[in-house]
Design a protein around this nucleic acid. Sequence first.
DNA 1: ACCTGAACACCGTTCAAGT
DNA 2: ACCTGAACACCGTTCAAGT
Lengths: 187, 187
Amino acid sequence: MNSNSREAILAAAKRAAQAHGYSGLNFRELAQTVGIKSASIYYHFPSKADLGAAVAKRYWEDTAAVLQDMLAETPDPLRCLRQYPDIFRRSLESENRLCLCSFMSAEYQDLPETVKKEVQTFADVNVAWLSRVLAAAATIGAGESEKRARAIFAAVAGAQLIARSRADIALYDEIIDSYRVAGLLTA
Amino acid sequence: MNSNSREAILAAAKRAAQAHGYSGLNFRELAQTVGIKSASIYYHFPSKADLGAAVAKRYWEDTAAVLQDMLAETPDPLRCLRQYPDIFRRSLESENRLCLCSFMSAEYQDLPETVKKEVQTFADVNVAWLSRVLAAAATIGAGESEKRARAIFAAVAGAQLIARSRADIALYDEIIDSYRVAGLLTA
DNA sequence: ACCTGAACACCGTTCAAGT
DNA sequence: ACCTGAACACCGTTCAAGT
């Protein structure tokens, strides 16, 4: 294969990890998807930990880009907030996949340090964005936006997790709607 | 070992699965904890799937008992609601463990059917209890209690997941508190 | 530079054999 | 009834060797 193997591995690993977690990453299967031998993966990533960290890093970078685009296209903070759960919905639409970092949060105790770090950054990116949007919306007290941001992030991740366990997107929509009714999403 | 091996295996497997998931259940390690050889586990549980299902079943049975006791000791529905998140808090207190069924929800795609069934029952037990307490509290519209129950269950599971990923119980408390402030827990 | 075959230790599982 | 040793196929990983 050519030097694009690295990108192909990253893409395949991302999809696999969203379905089976870090521990479920299977080098032989991954290699087969990419079209190389499992030993060849180690040329691009020195260890499973390195691959995991690279995948998680790419994951939050991609999410950060999506969030930035959303804010650029939809300057109205309230409408932005409304769209936030769509990001997690898209994973479920894609063969009932989970947020990579939710899966890795479950696997926390068995994660290499470098991977843990990227998982935390994913959370930080989401909370920072939500916090900023909440502050702009000014629907809750100043100084409360970061705390509320963490709550929204956790709640949306939980909704995705529970909906996945029944392979039921309608359940996800219902839970998100219920958050809105209760006032958690301040919409 | 004596015939209590079965119980010892169940107990050890429960703790291990809360930390490492179903896929992380390791028969050799499990056997060592119990004091028998890994092959002996198969005398009590014909397969890993059977062990997993038995563990998940016991898990929701225990939770159902705890919930029932709570309602018996604290007939006031509002106070009951207030105590609900303590159940998930206790897992975090116990070496940062996750709800077994949250972990298994993440692992959903790789779970044997018999295990999936028990995971769903865990969710059902929680939602039914919350729904009943919410209806008794009568703080939200009639007919809305089941929907709200699902939202609370998902949100609390999410809070536990996120707090685990930082090994930070204070974060759990903060998110739960934020749910209360927002009005999700109707307290 | 990029890839591979062969080998290692490890795991779920089976099964015949022990007491 | 309850447990074990030995064996099987499989997986993450390594590494010397290929082109």
